[in-house]
C-alpha cells in the first residue's frame, strides 16, 4: 500500500515535470519571443539586446527553464504583459474562487443525480424509466456544451425572463445569496448536464454488474431487506470504480468550464485564459495552464489513493 502511494507520487512528480517542459517548449518555439512585447521597430540592436538581457533571455534554455520552475514554486509566475502589470498569481487567485464555485456545484449536482438515476434505473431494468435514463445519457453526452448553454439562455432569460444570462452578480450589487444562486443556475445546469449523462451511464453499468454478483445474491438469500442490499451491499461497491472515472473526467471538465465561463461571462480561470489567448499574454497563459494542470494531476493522485483505500480487495504489492 505504502509502496503504491510512493509510486503514484513519483509518477505525479514526473508528470508535473513533463507538463512544465511541454509548456516551456511551446513558448520557446513561439515566433518572435516574449521580448517582442517591449521591442519597438526603431530600436537599435543594442537596445534589444539590453531588453533581452534584462528579461534573462540571453541565458541558455535549460537555465531559463530552471529559473521559471523555481520561481513558480515560490509562487512567482511573472506579471501580466497587458493592461496593468499585475502578478499572474494574484490574477489567478482572484479568479480561482469563481471557477471553484462553478465546478464544485456542477460536480456535486451531477454526482448526486447520477447516483439516484444510476441506482433506480437498473433496479427497474428495461422499464420506461430505465429507457429514458439510457436515452438521456446518450443525448446528454452528445450536447456540445456551448450550444446547450446558448439554448438555455434563449429559453430561460430571453423567452421566459426568469434567470440572468451572464455574470456573477448584478451590476454594482452587494453579495446576495438569492442573486448569486440565480446567476449560478444556468452555468451549473449546462456544466452538469454533460457529466450527468456520462456518470449515469457508468454507475448504471456498474450497478448492473454488482447486482448480478454472488455477494448480492447471498445478501438476498439471507433475507436482508432490499434497501439494505441495494444501498449497503450493491451501491457501495458500485461506486468504487466511479472514483477513478471522476478523476479522469476532470481534464474534460476543465475544458467544459472554459466554454461555460465564456458563454455566461463568468469571471473565472476559463475566461481569464481565453482573454489572455486573445491578447497573447504569455505569462498569464503559462501560469493558468500550470496551475490547472497541477490541480488536475493532484486530483487524480487523490482519486487514485482513495481508490486503493476504499477497496481493500485491491493490492498493488
Amino acid at each position: 500500500m505504502r509502496a503504491h502511494v510512493m509510486r503514484r507520487l513519483i509518477a505525479a512528480v514526473f508528470m508535473l515535470l513533463g507538463v512544465t517542459v511541454t509548456i516551456f517548449i511551446i513558448m520557446e518555439i513561439a515566433p518572435g519571443g516574449p521580448e517582442m512585447m517591449f521591442v519597438a521597430e526603431d530600436m537599435g540592436f543594442e537596445r534589444v539586446e539590453e531588453i533581452r538581457r534584462r528579461m534573462g533571455l540571453d541565458q541558455p534554455p535549460h537555465i531559463r527553464y530552471i529559473r521559471w520552475v523555481s520561481a513558480a514554486m515560490r509562487g512567482d509566475l511573472g506579471r501580466s504583459l497587458t493592461g496593468a502589470p499585475l502578478p499572474v498569481t494574484s490574477l489567478i487567485a482572484e479568479r480561482f474562487g469563481a471557477t471553484g464555485l462553478l465546478m464544485g456545484t456542477s460536480i456535486v449536482l451531477a454526482v448526486v443525480f447520477a447516483v439516484i438515476l444510476g441506482v433506480i434505473s437498473p433496479v427497474f431494468q428495461y422499464s420506461w424509466l430505465d429507457r429514458i435514463t439510457t436515452l438521456y445519457a446518450y443525448f446528454g453526452m452528445s450536447f456540445p456544451p456551448f450550444w446547450l448553454g446558448i439554448m438555455l439562455i434563449l429559453l430561460f432569460s430571453v423567452i421566459l425572463g426568469w434567470l440572468p444570462s451572464s455574470g456573477m452578480t448584478r451590476y454594482g450589487e452587494e453579495l446576495d445569496v438569492v442573486s448569486r444562486l440565480q446567476h449560478l443556475a444556468l452555468p451549473v445546469v449546462t456544466q452538469a448536464t454533460m457529466w450527468l449523462g456520462v456518470y449515469t451511464r457508468f454507475i448504471r453499468a456498474s450497478m448492473l454488474e454488482v447486482l448480478h454478483s454472488d455477494y448480492v445474491r447471498t445478501a438476498r438469500a439471507k433475507g436482508l431487506a432490499e434497501q439494505v442490499v441495494l444501498f449497503k451491499h450493491a451501491l457501495r461497491n458500485a461506486l468504487i470504480p466511479f472514483i477513478t472515472i471522476l478523476g479522469l473526467s476532470l481534464p474534460s471538465m476543465v475544458a467544459g468550464s472554459v466554454w461555460v465561463e465564456t458563454i455566461f461571462a463568468w469571471p473565472g480561470l476559463g475566461r481569464l485564459i481565453v482573454q489572455s489567448v486573445n491578447r497573447r499574454d504569455y505569462p498569464v497563459i503559462m501560469g493558468v495552464c500550470l496551475v490547472v494542470s497541477c490541480a488536475v494531476i493532484l486530483a487524480n493522485l487523490i482519486a487514485d489513493i482513495a481508490y486503493s483505500l476504499v477497496d481493500p480487495r485491491i493490492s498493488y504489492d
Binding site: 509518477a11 476532470l250 472554459v258 504569455y282 503559462m286
Partner: peptide
C-alpha cells in the same frame, strides 16, 4: 506510456489554447 499518461492528464483544450495563442 508515461508520455501518453502525461498528455492524458493535461486538459487538452488548454494545450490547444497555448498552441493557438503562440502560432
Amino acid at each position: 506510456m508515461r508520455l501518453t499518461d502525461m498528455f492524458y492528464s493535461i486538459p487538452a483544450l488548454l494545450l490547444i489554447l497555448i498552441l493557438v495563442a503562440v502560432f
